[in-house]
Amino acid sequence: MLGSRWLRGLLFALPGLLLAGFGAVHPAVLDAATASWWAELHVLLLPVFPLPAVAQWLLLTSAPPWLRWPGRLAAFGFAVFYGGLDAVAGIAAGTVVHAQHGATPVVGAVFGVGDLLGHLGAGCFLAANALIVFAAISRARWRAVPGAVILLGASVSFLDSHIFWPRGVVTMIGVAVGTSWLSLAGARPDGGETR
């Protein structure tokens, strides 16, 4: 059914689109004026950041086990480490700056931990997407190539753009388009997976 096929594509695009929307309202800098919103925004993001990992997990469903399980482990790593970044550099840093009425050396230490978690999470995101791309091209051939190129490009950009405006927002839109495209490239017209 065509409707369910396009609904599938929309559902796979949704995590990236949500993150792009949050990125558009993310403060550019953390200071006394933005600290409260910074912390609140990252509380709102807690249930959103794991959603790309869910999409990755599902995109790996029809992959051979030797791709599926390392890919799912990387997706899990993304959810864990990037969730840690959100909690530390988002909620904790925003709370510290708000309580101290400005940035202090404590915030630098908090960001140091958050940056490490973010780099690990973004690396896991890239690894999972590389395995997804390999599986999708193996299965769907040329139909997967545009989505693969977009998703890999966005995954590399995500290593340092995160969701910050403007590049991070464009990156998340790329993730949305790439995951949606790959979900459609590997789907049969009846909504099932091609093998």
Rank of each mutant, 00 (worst) to 15 (best):
T171M: 05
P189A: 15
A63T: 14
F164C: 04
A154H: 12
P70D: 06
R143F: 13
L67R: 12
T104L: 08
A154F: 13
A55Y: 05
L44R: 10
L120D: 07
A130S: 13
D31H: 06
A93P: 03
A75C: 06
G94Y: 00
H42D: 11
V156D: 07
L67S: 04
G77L: 02
W181T: 07
G186H: 10
V133I: 12
A92E: 06
A176V: 04
L116A: 13
V54F: 09
L184H: 09
T171K: 03
A109T: 09
A103E: 09
V177F: 07
G186C: 13
G71N: 04
S36Y: 12
Q100D: 13
P64Y: 05
T34V: 11
L58P: 04
W66Q: 15
W69S: 15
A109Q: 14
F22M: 08
I163Q: 01
V149T: 15
L131Y: 00
A55W: 03
S157V: 07
F158H: 11
G9F: 01
G112Q: 12
T104C: 06
P50L: 09
F76P: 00
W38F: 10
P65V: 12
V96T: 10
A13P: 05
G90Y: 00
A93K: 01
F134K: 06
H42R: 13
F158G: 04
G16Q: 05
P105M: 08
A176I: 05
A33T: 12
A127K: 00
L131D: 01
L152F: 13
Y82W: 10
V133S: 06
A127T: 10
W181L: 07
S161K: 07
F76Y: 04
V80H: 02
G16V: 02
Q56I: 02
R68P: 05
G191E: 09
V149H: 12
F12T: 09
I132P: 01
F49A: 13
I132R: 04
A53Q: 05
L60D: 03
H119T: 13
A28N: 08
A39W: 00
L45S: 07
R195Q: 11
G174W: 00
R195S: 11
G112V: 03
L152R: 14
L51I: 10
G147C: 12
G16H: 06
L11Y: 06
L7T: 11
L126D: 00
A185M: 14
L126S: 00
A122P: 01
V97F: 01
G23M: 05
G191S: 14
V80S: 04
L46G: 14
H101P: 01
